[in-house]
Amino acid sequence: QEELVKAFKALLKEEKFSSQGEIVAALQEQGFDNINQSKVSRMLTKFGAVRTRNAKMEMVYCLPAELGV
């Protein structure tokens, strides 16, 4: 569980995922086979993730800066 949270936060820091499906796929690539869209959705809510525009003006998920991840 701890490893999943770390990987999840690291992915969001990249600010390149525009959908929950993309986050699920990226986590599965890292070996988290039991991850699915509903789990990702709950984690996004739990950590207060928001959708914002990145440098390329794409809408992407990211974590609020005050979490200091």
Rank of each mutant, 00 (worst) to 15 (best):
G68H: 07
S41P: 01
E14I: 07
E14H: 06
Q1M: 12
S18E: 07
E58P: 03
Y61D: 01
T52M: 15
I23V: 04
E29N: 11
E29H: 10
Q1D: 13
F8W: 01
C62I: 10
R51F: 15
G21V: 13
P64T: 05
K56M: 10
L63E: 02
S19E: 08
L12N: 00
S18P: 04
R51P: 04
F17Y: 15
P64I: 05
M57V: 03
N36H: 06
G21Q: 14
S38E: 12
F17I: 04
G68Y: 03
K16A: 10
V50N: 05
F17K: 03
A10W: 08
T45M: 10
F8K: 00
I35S: 02
E15M: 13
S19I: 05
F47K: 01
K39H: 11
S38P: 09
F47Y: 11
P64V: 05
N36G: 07
I23W: 01
L63K: 02
V40A: 03
G48H: 09
L27V: 01
L12M: 06
A10Q: 13
L44A: 02
K16P: 06
G48C: 04
K13A: 12
F8H: 00
I23D: 00
L12H: 00
M59I: 09
K13I: 10
R51D: 02
A10E: 12
E66P: 08
E3L: 12
F17G: 02
V40C: 02
T52D: 06
E22P: 03
V24C: 06
V50K: 14
E3Y: 10
A10H: 09
L67F: 04
R51H: 08
M43C: 02
M57I: 03
M57E: 10
E14Q: 13
L27R: 00
A7I: 07
S19Q: 08
R42H: 14
C62T: 13
V60N: 02
T52P: 02
A10N: 10
R42G: 12
Q1G: 12
Q28V: 12
L44M: 06
A25H: 10
Y61H: 02
A7C: 10
F8C: 11
Q28S: 09
K9P: 00
F17N: 01
Q28R: 14
Q37G: 10
E15I: 04
E66R: 06
K9D: 03
Y61G: 02
M59S: 05
L11V: 05
D33Q: 12
G21I: 12
M43N: 01
S41T: 08
T45Y: 08
A25Y: 10
A25C: 06
V5W: 10
M59N: 05
D33L: 14
P64F: 04
V24G: 03
K6A: 14
T45Q: 12
E58Y: 04
A55P: 07
R53C: 08
A65T: 12
N34G: 14
Q20M: 12
I23N: 01
M57Q: 13
Q20I: 15
N34F: 15
Q37D: 14
V40P: 00
S19T: 15
L44D: 01
V50G: 07
F17P: 03
L11E: 00
A7P: 00
E15L: 09
R51E: 04
G68D: 15
L4E: 04
K56Y: 09
K9F: 14
V5S: 09
L4F: 06
I35H: 01
I35R: 00
D33P: 14
M43S: 00
L63W: 06
F17W: 09
G21A: 14
K56L: 10
K46Y: 14
F17M: 12
K9H: 11
E15A: 14
Q20H: 09
L12I: 07
L4P: 01
A26R: 07
E66H: 11
E29V: 09
G21H: 11
Q20Y: 09
P64H: 04
A49G: 05
L11Y: 03
G48W: 03
V69D: 15
D33Y: 11
N36C: 04
A55H: 12
L67T: 15
G31I: 01
A7F: 07
G48T: 02
L67Y: 04
S18C: 04
C62F: 05
D33W: 12
K9C: 12
S18I: 08
E22L: 05
